[in-house]
Nucleic acid binder design. Sequence first.
DNA 1: TTGGTCCATCTTTTT
DNA 2: GATGGACCAA
Length: 800
Amino acid sequence: MVYFRAMDYLNLLNPQQRQAVTAAPGQTLVLAGPGSGKTRVLTQRIAYLIQSMGVRPYNILAVTFTNKAAREMGERLDQLLGGARARGLWLGTFHAMCARILRTEANNPGLLPFQSNFVIFDADDQQNLVKRALRENNIDDKINKPSAIHARISEAKNNLVSPDDLPVRSYRDEIVVKAFKRYNELLQQNNAVDFDDLLLWVVRLFEEHPEITEKYARRFEYVLVDEFQDTNMVQYSLLKLISSYHHNIFVVGDEDQSIYRWRGADYRNMLRFEQDNPGCEKILLEQNYRSTQTVLDAARSVIDQNANRTPKSLFSDRGRGEKISLHEAVDDHAEAAYVVDTIQGLLRKGALGGDFAVMYRTNAQSRLLEEAFLRAGLAYRLVGAQRFYGRREVKDMIAFLRLVHNPDDEISLQRIIAVPPRSIGEKTVNALQFAAQKAGHSMGAMLLELAEKADESPVWKELGRGAGPIFDFAVLFSGWLKAKGELDLPALFDRIVTETDYKPYIDDGTDEGKDRWDNVEELRRLAFEYQNKGLVDFLENLALVSDQDTLPEQVNSPTLLTLHAAKGLEFPQVFIVGLDDGILPHSRSRDDPEEMAEERRLFYVGITRAKDHLYLVRAGLRSTYGNPEYQVASQFLDDIPEDLLVRSGGEVVGGPARLKSWDDTGEDDYSYGRRSSSHYSNSRSNDVSRSNSSSNDVSRSSVSRSSGSRSSNGWGKTSYDWSQPRTVHAASGRSTPPPPAPEPEQKFHDGQRVRHPSWGEGLVLSSRILDGEETLDVAFESVGIKRLIASLAKLEAIGN
DNA sequence: TTGGTCCATCTTTTT
DNA sequence: GATGGACCAA
């Protein structure tokens, strides 16, 4: 095997890239615009260090934000160097790196408030715990929403502020402090940490134990960081500490792509880095290798409206390319239909499914899109971990495993102690909890004692009538604990499923039941991949999977994802939907200029994902929750020069609000759309049944191992590929276009006025062909909006 | 204790 | 239009 020698690949870089890759030891700040070869620079820098500078991989640390990014870098390094050459390199996410450090250091007793087998609580568990903390303090969790309180706690942790240091200026602050303290105690009791703790405890450990800091800082001669604009206070401190011996730190970022402010990220860390390191070398990468100039011009026109940034002028030698399509659909259904129709049309002309991505601001927006894809019989892939891990059956199974891993995990125990139902109710659980509290043990420990001593244990009496069922469960539980040492992971998994009789509980014979069981099997398959690595690694990776990590790679289908999840990716053809005021920018950001700036950056990130063609889509009428509301076009659209755009749609209803002047006073005609929300969901009389939704909805997440990665030391390589979380015609990897349906004639068009025998006059909001029938959404003054089939409803056109 | 139904509430974005 | 909580009947 012959690998590139350093000089060979250096020649393939542009001067700025080369300058970055070969930068002298010390501090380097690379400002990398979108598509400027950031990952390339990072990986080649590592290769350069190893090959030309003689640095041992063992002495290099590379940190990313997602496992996917880490994996990609690992694969590229393998190509550059050959797997063996990179052995010993630490390459992984902030969180995984910290978990690793904590697992090691927690072996020294007394250093940390948890043991080495700690569990990582996910977002759900964290909220759960906050709720408990609130209730224990007799605080109403209706008024003080756990999510809001948790956000405050998380913010404090991200800023290295302890509960005692939190300023108390209001009653609300008092609540936060109380909850915060109890929350931390509960974590400790559960031998658990939250996401923020992973980082926080490492920083604390480093700050209080210089000798430990030195151990790591000496090792890491060179530290490299990706997506530096997304670091928060804790991460910044961590990097500072870990590079405090050799002071060689190389960071890459783009302040314009900072979109995690709400998570504590602060793009000003880029500035801070410069200030903290006066001698640092600063390199600007402006050449874009991804997009057409048209896309870049649009991106620039949007981002230039933001203040406080280093102005950049991205340029491309790819030529002007196609204009940007701006489509205004009548409503959100039509918006989804437009996207799918357009994609289908292009597929017929030979485009590949994988060329397309559809991006949106909120996850909720995916639903209509999914439905449209399903109706068209078109496969798609959906990015989002929650879709799978959020499912009850998956969470149940994980809870069983977590409990076996860490018997002190009461959140998991409470979740599954009565699952499937085994005559253990609230009273019994409370009795057990009370007994545990009194004895100073965890509930799990109580169970183990009970299993051993049965009715001779003091708990038995306290449990009263509940003792029997609890005892039975305790016996199961203690059996699993013993089995943990003997069985491998899949076998343990199977044993739990069998002994709890879990299958009949969730698989009730319905389609949904089958789906649920499929998910359990899916998780089992995943467990199978950890057969050798074991429970600890399995649980840790489950806790730290990101949405991006779930993006299936081999599938050649259009991708549906949030704008956040799109960062770091690129696609030939990109649709951004929901360009309406209140969606993008999101309504929650309206009052805060900083937040608005971030919304703008989010849009910028979306635009710059496009290589060839960008489609911007909005809807004049959109249902949030269930109420239809007129939409005003996003203000961001105003910033894109008209000559970059080709417009379509936008002729009817509510008007293109801000896009063209609309001198019509016709609003009154449609005012029912605003309030009479109830008409929407009720009265199904003539509704088109959503027939095929369950019959051919395969709803499965299948998992397959990615390339045979020669793992250096397991870092960031333990990843899975999720394919087609929801897919019809799963086999259509080639995305062969389905035969064009015979198009029936459309008798009505959008915006037309019609009369119905019983409902009177109405306005056609949209007309399209569904399942071979012309299907209309009509807004009636009398009954609100109805969906009708043209051939069945006795509709009469009024005028034209 | 269980499992059903009805109601309210909600939605950013995610390691 | 989904989810979780409260409430109620067996």
